[in-house]
């Protein structure tokens, strides 16, 4: 019955039919261009990447060989060397994160456009934050190694400087998203810049801030583990030694230990987030 009613609606001639298009012609052009650019980038990259078929073919065999040498892991290695190095890694991660706050908090305040109105200051802060982020912690480690020599000092500073960009950027965004209401109330009451931050922005941004710090600590635990590969302290150095000596069972121990620590760190972070944030 409903078919009969609907089909009795006037069937418009094609020229009279209303056309529906999801995107305007301009939008369609732009989207097409972007898709084509993406495809071109992929094709271009794929053509120039050197893929040596022989290496690909015996890859499974190589992996199998490696894995068999890694099993069983050398359990005695743990108490001797791995444990101390693991603790050192944790210290590097934690200290580095705390250190980064010293610079990240002021820069985060300066880069938030609603808090700092001076555009030039915003820009400078952004440049500093971007530079800090763009350089890997591993590369920062190389720099600090050249300055301070091998050891965990270089590693801690590397983690710290890398984290400044991450924490600063996210903190700035959190501040920019804080609702204006309480801030306006404080302004109306005559509060100065510091008062506005302390009583207006800080209480609102607090949960986001600690969440960001925890997240960065979690990432830093992972990153600290590999810094030792270039000599910046922590478990990476044990790993490097074992790999250079082809002691794959010790390598396995180290990797398992790192994995365990990373899992524990994630659990800790999840629990803290659930209870406190």
């Amino acid at each position: 019955m409903s078919e009969a009613v609907l089909s009795s609606l006037p069937r418009l001639a094609p020229t009279q039919q209303r056309i529906w298009q999801r995107f305007t012609p301009l939008q369609r052009m732009l989207r097409l261009m972007v898709w084509m650019a993406i495809v071109a980038a992929i094709v271009q990259s794929a053509r120039h990447v050197e893929i040596i078929p022989e290496f690909l073919y015996d890859a499974p065999e190589q992996m199998g060989d490696l894995l068999s040498r890694m099993w069983p892991p050398d359990a005695t290695h743990y108490p001797q060397t791995v444990h101390a190095a693991l603790m050192e890694t944790l210290h590097i991660a934690s200290l580095g994160t705390l250190l980064s706050l010293v610079f990240a908090v002021p820069l985060g305040l300066l880069v938030a456009t609603n808090l700092t109105r001076n555009r030039l200051v915003n820009l400078v802060a952004r440049i500093l934050l971007v530079s800090s982020r763009s350089v890997n912690s591993l590369v920062w480690a190389l720099l600090f190694l050249a300055v301070f020599g091998p050891g965990p000092l270089a590693g801690t500073l590397a983690i710290g400087f890398r984290s400044i960009g991450f924490v600063g950027k996210l903190l700035g965004e959190a501040i920019e998203q804080a609702p204006r209401g309480p801030i306006e109330a404080l302004e109306a009451a005559g509060a100065g810049w510091f008062a506005r931050i302390g009583y207006g922005y800080w209480p609102q941004v607090k949960p986001a801030f600690w969440s960001i710090v925890l997240l960065r600590w979690d990432i830093n635990v992972r990153e600290s583990a590999v810094l030792g590969l270039v000599g910046a302290g922590g478990i990476g150095m044990v790993l490097d030694t074992a790999m250079n000596l082809f002691q794959w069972d010790r390598v396995a121990t180290v990797l398992l230990a790192v994995f365990a620590v990373v899992v524990v760190a994630e659990v800790v972070v999840t629990q803290v987030r659930k209870r406190v944030l």
């Binding site: 050197e50 290496f55 890859a59 499974p60 190589q62 490696l66």
Partner: peptide, 9 residues
């Protein structure tokens, strides 16, 4: 690197 050799792959 151990599995497929040095390089971009």
């Amino acid at each position: 690197v151990k599995a497929v050799g040095f390089g971009a792959m």
